[in-house]
Every structure is written in structure tokens, then in C-alpha cells.
């Protein structure tokens, strides 16, 4: 069993959704996570906020941002257990973020330091 991180990418995070819409998204996300949890394949996950976001550059220059309105932003991630990348991809396909046009999911294997991967 390997661990994969499923990264949610939003086309435009600045779009202001209605409270009703946000509640619907939340319900969908919870159901999605619950479906992974039921298979005992959910490890952890979280959303990422734009409040107080900072970028630290190579010269240690600190800037505000990223802001939601840049082309692609990361909205959150979940870590799952899967026997193969294909299984992880199946989990990713169920993420409600994909209902939003232009959004995408990135699936990356987590290096586990066992010398095999």
C-alpha cells in the first residue's frame, strides 16, 4: 500500500460563491471523504486558506499572497492510501472540485523513504 496526495487545483479561487452553494460543496466534500474513509483508505486532509497567505522568495523576500484571483490556486489536499496510482486516480475522480469548470486534481505519490520508490 502506498500513500498518494490528491491536490485540488482551482481555476479561479476568487469567485464568490453563495452561502447556499458553499454549503452544498461542503456536503459533497464530506461525502467524498466519507466514501474513502469507509474503505479505510483516508489518511488526512485539509483545506488551505488565503487569509494571511505569504510567499517567501529565494532572496527571502516575503510578499503577501498568493491571492485567490491568480490563474491556478491550490484549494486543499487529501492524503489517501492506495495499492496503485490507478486506485488513487479513482479516488481523485470523485472529488467535487472537479464539478467546477477548469478545476483539476493532481495525484502525486508520496516518497516514503523505503528505498523502493
Amino acid at each position: 500500500m502506498q500513500e498518494f496526495v490528491l491536490i485540488m487545483r482551482h481555476e479561479d479561487g476568487s469567485k464568490v460563491a453563495s452561502p447556499e452553494q458553499m454549503q452544498i460543496w461542503m456536503k459533497q466534500t464530506m461525502e467524498w471523504i466519507e466514501s474513502i474513509r469507509k474503505q479505510n483508505k483516508f489518511v488526512s486532509g485539509t483545506g488551505l486558506l488565503f487569509d494571511d497567505a505569504r510567499v517567501v522568495k529565494s532572496n527571502k523576500l516575503v510578499t503577501n499572497g498568493p491571492f485567490g484571483d491568480i490563474k491556478e490556486t491550490i484549494g486543499g489536499y487529501v492524503i489517501v492510501k492506495a495499492t496503485s496510482v490507478d486506485e488513487a486516480v479513482e479516488f481523485a475522480k470523485g472529488c467535487p472540485v472537479l464539478l467546477g469548470e477548469g478545476n483539476s486534481m493532481e495525484v502525486r505519490k508520496i516518497a516514503n523513504g523505503d528505498g523502493v520508490h
Binding site: 460563491a17 458553499m22 460543496w25 466534500t29 471523504i33 483545506g47 488551505l48 487569509d51
Partner: peptide
């Protein structure tokens, strides 16, 4: 107000 719900969305979805 909107940001408050966004924060709820980003937190409750994962943590209950």
C-alpha cells in the same frame, strides 16, 4: 461574512 463560510467550508469538510 463570505470569508467566514469559506473558512467553514475549508475546515469542516475535512475535520467534521
Amino acid at each position: 461574512t463570505s470569508e467566514t463560510f469559506l473558512q467553514a467550508l475549508e475546515t469542516w469538510s475535512y475535520k467534521g
